[in-house]
């Protein structure tokens, strides 16, 4: 799998989230106040609304691509990441994937606080979809890097927030992926660990063929990405170099506040 070229493509991808009945209140009256944030609200029936989270998004990623997703709150970044990861199916359009996708949305996903660090390494490995035997091979490396030592024999409820973050980070970056999808750049721990973590993350990211990362941190995006897309209200509004896209996004944000 590692040797074959990965790819990740979307053709005219659209997706709507149904709004639960009874929660939309007097939306019809309030509709004159158009929101700066969020995606378009569409009326799909009498008194029934849906959030048009993504509208006609097309993209094509090949090995070497490092895509930055830029956009304000509710622009559709997270939804797009989840579509790329295969969590949400599309209403219309196509998704095409070659390669193994690894996602880091919530580093603490599935942690069992009453179980030991070692048990949680196994648990998280299984959640990632690796067989037990493969997780067993990686356990020592994860344990070493986390620096948690004897604490790995203790239940997670005895850990501090920073220690939890160390363990989560060590697990999340343990297995190579061919396509990596990140919602916000990740990092963990105190000053000493933060430096180690960054080195590990850079090596980890360098090994992947395709990277997609959504972030509000322009410096991070400029450092690690080589192409960018700006989303607004669920649509793709700008595509190009990271620097140019970031500048375009900043200018538009400013223009909005100047109005």
């Amino acid at each position: 799998m590692r040797n074959t070229a990965s790819s990740l493509r979307l053709f005219n991808a659209s997706l709507r989230f149904p709004a639960q009945m009874g929660r939309v209140g007097n939306l019809r009256i309030a509709r004159e106040k158009r929101a700066d944030v969020g995606s378009e609200l569409v009326e799909v029936g009498p008194g029934r609304y849906a959030v048009q989270a993504l509208k006609d998004i097309s993209l094509s990623l090949v090995p070497g691509d490092r895509l930055a997703l830029i956009g304000g709150n509710g622009a559709g970044k997270t939804t797009l990441l989840r579509v790329l990861a295969g969590i949400f199916d599309l209403d219309s359009g196509l998704r095409e994937v070659n390669g193994e996708i690894s996602t880091i949305f919530n580093m603490r996903l599935g942690f069992e606080m009453a179980e030991t660090g070692y048990d949680n390494i196994m648990l998280r490995g299984l959640i990632e979809g690796h067989p037990r035997s493969m997780v067993e091979m990686a356990v020592d490396e994860i344990a070493d890097f986390s620096g948690l030592g004897e604490y790995l024999y203790m239940p997670l409820e005895t850990y501090s927030a920073g220690m939890l973050a160390r363990l989560a980070f060590s697990i999340a970056t343990a297995w190579d992926a061919s396509i990596l999808i990140l919602d916000e750049w990740i990092g963990a721990g105190d000053a000493g660990f933060l430096k180690m973590a960054e080195e590990r993350l850079v090596t980890f990211v360098d090994k992947v063929q395709i990277l997609v990362v959504a972030s509000h941190n322009g410096a991070i995006l400029r450092r690690f990405c080589n192409k960018a897309m700006v989303l607004a209200h669920g649509s793709l509004v700008y595509e190009g170099e990271v620097d140019a896209a970031w500048k375009w996004f900043q200018d538009h944000q400013k223009a909005k506040f100047a109005d």
């Binding site: 969590i87 949305f105 996903l109 599935g110």
Partner: peptide
């Protein structure tokens, strides 16, 4: 929900 919305 926690699991299903985090990964396929």
């Amino acid at each position: 929900r926690g699991l299903l919305t985090q990964r396929p």
